[in-house]
Amino acid sequence: MTGSVFLIITSAALSFLIIMLFSINMIIMTKFGKSMTFQDKIELFSVPLAADNYRSPNYEKIKQYKETEKILNMTVYHQKEESELLPIIESSLTEAKRINDRLFEKNEDREINLILHNSKEDLKTYTSLVDTLGYYDDTNAVIGIAVKDYKRILTRWDAAYAYFHSTIMHEYTHYRLQTYIKANNLYVYRIPLWFHEGVSEYVGMKGLTYPYYSFEQVPLKKLASHEQWETYRTGAYDIYAQSYFAINYLVEQYGEDIIPKIIRYTAQANDFNQGFKKATGLSVNELDALYMESKRRPLD
């Protein structure tokens, strides 16, 4: 969505490391009975501006005049009228933590500020991120979530609730995934972007279904860096769906333990391609030929 795009900003002039929530083309939300159209994607979940346009937010200004609530390791900053969302946030964070505890070793949780923005426009005002529902700023330990259609979120059934819930799940997973990568003495950028996005979407899409539809596939090796991601993020491509399909295929073939195993073997070899090959028996190029083909097969 934006739901989230994971951006690793490598320029020395930019200290703002941020993860934006993922983009999805056509989602059939089986729990909520809704479908996203291509126009929905353009309006809600298109990828924000290039990294050169980001500015580091003034988080103290954003948090000013907001109330706080402690949920797990998160201090949630919210407007008084948004307090009804707190049980939903707690439920989403609890589910995200349960899944991530299963995927990764339990760790001493870092203190995170979770800031609610009262709209996409408010989020854009402070961060310059365009048409984005969420982000994770690892440097400043901040998750930001845009509240869209507050009353519909409260139904716990409407598509707006699905987006809100999935955004929280996705951004929390970026936090835990990066924590695990660093715990294995790896720089975060040593793990390619498609893997970050795919894992976060795998968790964020729990209970939802990506259908297969026709789009032009990009070799995963060309989706490793932010610069490469920006090259393919528009037009006939859906690199977010690709990332999800790739991780989901690996889990279907090897089980969920393949996710941390790839990271551990990458740390041992100090090389993602070698670690991936050792963990899966496949090269990334071979994975390219398998995961999308599995989506083209007719259902039994």
Rank of each mutant, 00 (worst) to 15 (best):
K206W: 04
K206H: 12
L208W: 00
I168H: 01
M205S: 05
T179D: 10
R176W: 03
Y172C: 10
V203R: 03
Q178G: 14
K182C: 01
G207R: 05
Y175R: 09
M205E: 00
M205K: 02
Y175H: 13
R176P: 04
Y189A: 11
N184L: 09
Y187C: 00
V188M: 02
A183E: 14
I168G: 04
G198I: 06
L193S: 12
V203G: 07
M169C: 01
S200M: 10
V203K: 04
I181N: 04
F195Q: 01
W194E: 01
R190D: 13
I168Y: 02
N185L: 15
G204Y: 00
V203D: 08
M169Y: 12
Y202G: 06
Y175C: 02
N185P: 08
H170R: 08
I168C: 05
G207I: 05
G198Y: 02
T179K: 14
E171S: 11
N185W: 14
W194K: 02
T179P: 02
L193A: 10
R176A: 07
Y189D: 11
I191K: 01
A183F: 05
G198P: 03
N184F: 10
H174C: 08
L177Y: 08
L208M: 15
E171K: 11
V203F: 09
T179Y: 03
N184W: 09
S200Q: 06
H196K: 12
Y175P: 00
L186E: 10
E171T: 08
G207C: 09
W194H: 06
G207W: 05
Y189Q: 10
Y202A: 08
M205W: 01
L177T: 07
K206Y: 12
L208A: 15
M205A: 04
Y187K: 15
R190G: 07
I191Y: 05
V188K: 01
E201G: 13
